[in-house]
Structures are given as C-alpha cells and as structure tokens.
Amino acid sequence: MPRPAAAPRSAEEAAPPAATPTRSSSPARSAGVETTPAKDAAPGLRPATRRQWIAAGVLVALAVVGAATILVAIARWFVGLEPIAAFVEQYHGTAPLPEGAPVGIPPWLSWSHFANALLIVLIIRSGLQVRAERKPEAYWTSKRTGTKASLTVWLHTSLDVLWVLNGVVFVVLLIATGQWMRIVPTTWEVVPHAISAGLQYATLDWPIEDGWVAYNALQQLAYFATVFIAAPLAIITGVRMSGWWPKGNERLDRAYPIAWARAVHFPVMLYFVVFIVTHVLLVLTTGALRNLNHMYAARDADDWIGFLWFAGSLLVIAGAWIAARPALLVPIAQRFGAVSSR
C-alpha cells in the first residue's frame, strides 16, 4: 500500500519552484522585482509630441487672454459704480511724499539698477541650474577653507556676493541722498492709493504716471517689498544654505533649521521672477521712452537715449548669459581655489 504524500509545511513549499533567471532576464526581474509589461502602460503616460505641446500652449494662451478680458470687464464695471468711482477720484493713486523728498533719478541709481538687473538674471539662472544639477561637470575647492562645491554652486555664490555688495552700496546711497523717501511708505494713505492704482491698472486705464517726481503707491509698495523684505530674505536664507554657515553648531542649527531656509529661498526667487516680468511689462506699456530715460539715462525726456542704453544693457546681459559656461568660468574660479573633475 503506497504511503500518502506528506503535507507541505508552509505556503512556500506548496508553491511551484520559481524559474531560474536566464541571461536574458532583466536586472529588475532577476532581483525579484515585479515589472509591468510595456504594453500594459497607460496611454496617457506617453511623452507628448511637439504638435501636442504647441496645441497646449495655444490653448493656455487663449485661456489667459480670455480670463484677462473677463477680469478687465469686471474691473471696469466695478470702477463704474458710484461709490468706487468716488473712491478712485479721492485717492488718485499716488501717496504724498515727505517734505524735501528729492525729484529725479541720479546717475548712480541708474548704474546700480543696471548692475542689479545683470546680477539677478544670472543668479536666477545659476540657482535653477543648482536645483537641477545631478552630476556636476566640475568642482571648486576653496584655498582658504577647503570647502568643496560644484562649479555651478561657486558661480551662484560668487554672483550672490556681488549682488549683496551692489545692494549695500545702493541702500547706503539711498539713505544718504534722501532717495529712500521715494520708495519707503511714510503715511498710511499709501494703502487706499495703492488699492486705487490697482483698480486703475485692472481696467487698463493706467494711473497718471510721473516717476521722475514720485512713484504711484502700488509701485512704492512693490519697490519697498523688493528692497527691504525680499532681498534680505534671499540673503539670510542663502547664507544658511551656503558653505559659509558654521558647521557642527547644533544649537545654531536648531535655532535656524536649514529646512526653513530651503522652504523660503525658492519662493523668494519666484517672487523676483514675477516682479521682474511685471516691472518690465509695465515699463514698456506705460510710456516706454520716458520710463527708460528715467531708469537708464537719469533724465526726464521722451527721446531714444534711454532706449539705446537699455538695448545695450540687454546685449551685456545676453553676453554674460552665454559666457557663464564651465570653459570660461574655470580660469576665473582657479584664481580663488582649485578646480577638479571630482
């Protein structure tokens, strides 16, 4: 009489033996990781074609234009209401300045404005490169401290130093010459005037502009926030994330966590991008020649001199953008440290 087969001791013994991987098996399958055949992938995950990207871009542009048209129509209806119209008439958009506030823009401010534009564009570019960097092309090691970082991080940090120096000179001269009164609110009337200016912008009926004498209240608040809030935030968060932060100080690290700095630094960069785009758009649509003369030629005129300076500054910025490549950066970086491929 044949003996009955013994019952399996576990579920693993009951299962049929796994097939031995062959040389043609994929690494993932050989490691025991389940893989999904390509034919089972969802069609929606396929990369979009160029035609689809173009179509999506057109749809987004049409949606933006449509939404803007609706918002302008709503704003004009709103401003047409009697109480709102009276409010806009009472608060025309420009808050009064303190007595003795300077008139006009000095040449040093124009030059500082150009230097700031050049540096902030390169800082934003290098900052995005740092975020996307996975395998740096080169590394830089400080001769003084031995700190090692990628060449992109070195460029970003070096540009930050120049930007901070330019900002310090700008703020010192701003205070010394009284130009601070043009961008620092000194009365609460700036709030209703800023609301009025915003409503006028929304209706495309621009507020009366005379930037040579005074900025409107919305401009004043934007410039104040950029110079005295956004810029300091960018600096203190950037220092926390840089190699200059003291290492090994647990108490200091707990008081100022790097996670907080990272959470703030990137949104501040986005603020600068939005500010720059909006600033340039309004400069070009609210009297381009006069505005460019104010900003780049330090003169109150409607001729093309300021535009020529502006065009020249764009060429310089474009040239610096192209030149910011490892092949051209290495000789400069080697003056301050050692450059290596690892």
Rank of each mutant, 00 (worst) to 15 (best):
R3A: 09
R23M: 11
S24Y: 10
P27C: 02
T36C: 10
R46A: 15
R46H: 11
R50H: 14
W53H: 15
I70S: 09
I70P: 01
V72I: 15
A73Q: 12
A75E: 04
P83K: 02
E89Y: 10
E89G: 13
Y91V: 02
A95F: 00
E99H: 11
E99M: 07
G100K: 09
A101H: 06
G104Y: 05
P107D: 08
L109P: 00
W111L: 14
H113M: 08
A117N: 04
G127F: 00
G127Y: 00
Q129K: 12
V130Y: 02
A132W: 09
P136C: 01
Y139P: 00
K143R: 13
G146M: 05
L151C: 00
W154P: 00
V171M: 07
V172Q: 01
V172M: 04
L174M: 15
A176G: 03
G178H: 05
M181K: 10
W188F: 15
G198Q: 03
D205S: 13
W206G: 02
V213Y: 04
Y215S: 01
A217D: 00
A222R: 10
Y223A: 02
V227H: 00
F228R: 06
F228W: 15
T237M: 01
T237A: 05
R240Y: 03
E250S: 13
R251I: 13
L252P: 02
I258H: 06
M269K: 04
T278F: 08
V283C: 06
L284D: 10
G287N: 10
A301C: 09
I305D: 05
I305G: 01
G306D: 03
L314Y: 12
A320V: 11
I322W: 14
I322P: 02
A324E: 11
P326E: 10
A327G: 05
L329W: 00
P331S: 13
I332N: 05
A333S: 08
S340R: 06
